[in-house]
Design a protein around this nucleic acid. Structure first.
Lengths: 319, 319
DNA sequence: ACAGGGATCGCTCAAATGAGCGATCACGGC
DNA sequence: GCCGTGATCGCTCATTTGAGCGATCCCTGT
């Protein structure tokens, strides 16, 4: 495998000449051999050697915002159908979220067709995605969860996320203005029975492509955590809650956690989400690595759109 | 040929994944297709598209001192067997010469075997080559020309160029301490008959690999020009002399010029040099472009070791 | 709803390609 | 000088690969 003979300059130039014909000009090895007066086997060996010695470097990547190497690594490591790692220099959360949203929006435009039924969860990343969305197939869009007050979000124009997205393409919108977390399970049941909520829920089984956020179970890591009283949230943490996918609470191994809060949550259930054939999660910030890893292991998520730092952190995790 | 559809992020990552398997892991397209659950045709198309869109960039070149792209260009343009263009940043003639010599020395080490008989001309570049030479096959080394006073060369240790090179490998050295240009043709004939000179000349037909310098016909461009009286040199210029290869005078189209000076020159003749199966010339400095072009067109030279600026100038010439 | 146009996809077959094998050549030790 | 050793080279054949073609799918305009 190692270089048996040090490469002399004459051989280097010959290799370069052959490699250029082969890779750049797209010539066949036989033609190159004929043209240069050598056997095609020698051509093949020169090309192999050119790659071995690093004279020919094959760079896979883009000057653009997508780190395709990390993307494929992540994809293979976690068995994902799809992973998009954006290469954003700015480490301001705001900038990261905007870039993430833009990429997710492109993904949405690219993959969603009129035959699809899109499900959208709630969250700042999703709002950023909607804001960047320019092109959209004419398909139905279903709200997957209730809304939550977003603490630090100044522009609250994103209340009508589902409606806006659906309007862009011209499809039907299934949305409701109901909080995600309510005081009691009973109230939850009652709200689920509300016509507009029931209408959206009835469409959950039809959803073909869902876009969700992933929250980490600490202050500021999840809008669900922040929406709860501090002691309640920490109690849930002690009960094993590690992350939250579109309001679905999971433990560190990715299993849904059965707690009374589930009944108080208005939104898609673990089983219902599992039935969605294509779920893409949005997440950013290296702090969330553990939570996102749990989410990816849950089997609920098929794709991930994330940032470089989080992707690196995910790949750095053991096993 | 142009990109029909803008590349979406999901497709980009898929292309990257496929490209990595193909180019980096060296997998067969069929295997990739099987592994990713698609047809091998789709794999092929994805790879083609990855190259088209620039996602996969194949870079041929070296971080080192050799510009292989220019080398092959030059090689093809002038029909050379071999062209080595060194990528030296420093534009000091001294630095250029040293780098040139080092590369030529590597070339010598690489290509010369014990079966060869090496012929060496005279010049600063050749001296630099000898200085950098570390490894050398045990073969005979023949001096091709007499020596000339080198005006600006402080270290005159290079008088024994041939002997030093031969000694490094352990082969026989055929050398003589005779000036290259003498006062009269008669004196030239007499010196050629000197035993040590005749001994070297008798080996000229056996030379298999010669290394020569190329001089341009203006002050400072050639040690031969500088060795002559000014009016004599300019007269020769008017007579059509454009360049000088190892003391052989040629015109701008590369044809040897028949002038009385030839008889006054102690060194290999045009016909004798033409009989050498492999002649490598060393040259640097963009000013010499015309002279080097003439030398390359003469058919006396099969290989060139040069610098980036001269190579660029050579490629910029019409036709 | 439906037909036209365009892009995509997979198949066939011929050409290109690479692993393995024996022949040749250069080198080094006896 | 002679033979063992190792590297290089070219050949054969099974596998891989690419151009062309028809079928299908998707989109769009009427």
């Amino acid at each position: 495998m190692s270089t048996s003979t040090p490469v002399g300059p004459a051989e280097a130039v010959l290799m370069a000449s052959v490699a250029r014909r082969f890779y750049v000009d797209g010539m066949s090895k036989s033609d190159i051999a004929q043209q240069l007066g050598m056997s095609r086997f020698k051509v093949a060996r020169l090309i192999d050697r050119a790659i071995e010695t690093g004279l020919v470097q094959i760079r896979i990547g883009w000057p653009g915002s997508l780190d395709v190497t990390l993307s494929t690594d992540l994809q293979e490591r976690y068995g994902l159908r799809r992973a998009l790692v954006i290469d954003v220099q700015d480490d301001q959360p705001e900038a990261q979220r905007t870039a993430l949203g833009a990429t997710a929006a492109e993904l949405l435009s690219e993959t969603v067709t009129t035959a699809d039924v899109v499900g959208l969860a709630w969250g700042r990343s999703l709002a950023a995605m909607a804001r960047s969305l320019r092109r959209m197939a004419a398909c139905d869009v279903v709200q997957l969860t209730g809304a939550l007050q977003i603490s630090d979000d100044s522009d609250s124009s994103s209340v009508d996320l589902v409606r806006d997205v659906a309007r862009l393409g011209g499809g039907a919108a299934y949305y409701f203005h109901i909080p995600m977390i309510v005081a009691t399970g009973q109230l939850g049941d009652a709200l689920r029975a509300q016509p507009e909520v029931a209408r959206a829920i009835s469409r959950f089984p039809a959803v073909t492509k869902a876009f969700v956020g992933i929250g980490a179970w600490y202050r500021g890591g999840s809008t669900v955590f922040d929406a709860l009283a501090t002691n309640e949230a920490t109690d849930l943490g002690r009960a094993g809650v590690c992350a939250e996918i579109s309001g679905i609470l999971i433990d560190s191994s990715g299993r849904p956690v059965r707690v009374p809060l589930v009944r108080r949550t208005i939104g898609i259930s673990a089983d219902q989400l599992r039935a969605v054939p294509d779920v893409t999660a949005l997440a950013y910030g290296a702090d969330k690595a553990q939570a996102v890893a749990a989410a990816l292991h849950s089997g609920l998520v098929h794709g991930l759109v994330t940032t470089r730092d989080l992707a690196t952190a995910l790949l750095a995790r053991p096993h």
